[in-house]
Amino acid sequence: MSKKQKLKKTLVEQILDKAKIEHLGLAINALEEKTLPDGIERSDIYKTLALIGDKTGPIIGMLPLTEHLSEKKLAKASGNKKVSMIPQKDLQKTTGYIHGANNPVGIWQNKKFPIFIDTIALEHDFIVCSAGELGRSIQIAPSLLADFVQAQFIELREL
């Protein structure tokens, strides 16, 4: 992060501040950025995917942008026979966020949907995920995030 620009904190950042959870706000649009800040790789950036389970209803899966989700693994871990992506047209009314702004903190605060983070996150000091607005992200320790949103670490990616 070369020069510090003063950005208004997103609601997600305000929630984390209030809970005294260490994080760093970043101005990154992971869907469009070709060049990332120093020290951040594409594999550090996590997508927050909203799915619907046939038994549980909405669930959230998080894994690196560079990986593909195994719906079969997520279904099994979440107690469903099958899960499928929530159609983009239904995303905002389901999670409260538009495509590209889904984030575990806001979804947990508002909806309490079960959240699953790929175990690969445990191999890293931090992950980067959406801060609830397009072009905004947070950098946070995976265990701090998981504790705050009561997420489970499971293997979600296709191997």
Rank of each mutant, 00 (worst) to 15 (best):
K82W: 11
L26H: 03
S78V: 07
T48K: 10
E71A: 13
D147N: 14
Q92K: 14
L159W: 00
A151H: 04
I120Q: 02
K112Y: 10
C129Y: 06
E32T: 15
T66M: 08
E158R: 03
H68F: 08
K6I: 04
R42P: 06
I15C: 09
I45P: 02
K72N: 13
I45H: 00
E41C: 00
L51V: 10
K9A: 12
I138D: 01
Q152M: 04
A19R: 13
S143G: 10
G57P: 09
L31V: 02
A101D: 02
K111S: 08
A146N: 07
L24H: 03
P114R: 10
N102A: 06
K3Q: 05
A151C: 02
K4Y: 08
K4C: 00
W108L: 00
L26S: 01
I154F: 08
V83T: 05
V12G: 04
I59M: 08
I138E: 08
K76Q: 15
N29E: 04
L91Q: 06
L31E: 14
I138G: 03
Y46F: 13
S143A: 15
Q150K: 12
I45G: 00
I28F: 05
P104Y: 04
G53Q: 07
K81H: 12
K4F: 08
K111W: 05
V83F: 03
S43K: 00
D38M: 02
E22H: 12
I21K: 11
A77V: 06
L74R: 11
D17T: 11
T119C: 03
G96E: 02
E32I: 08
E22R: 13
P37Y: 03
K82S: 13
I154Q: 14
F126R: 04
P37K: 09
D147Q: 15
M85Y: 01
D38Q: 13
K9R: 14
R136H: 12
H23M: 01
A151D: 01
A141E: 08
K3E: 05
I28D: 02
I138L: 04
I86H: 07
G106S: 07
A75W: 09
L7Q: 15
T35N: 10
Q92V: 14
N80L: 08
L24E: 14
T95G: 06
I98Y: 07
Q150A: 12
R157A: 14
L26V: 00
K82V: 13
T94D: 04
F116Q: 05
G79Q: 05
I52F: 12
Q152V: 05
I15F: 12
K93L: 05
A75H: 06
S78Q: 04
I117S: 03
Y97G: 05
I28A: 00
E13G: 02
Q88G: 14
A101L: 04
A141H: 11
L74W: 09
G132T: 03
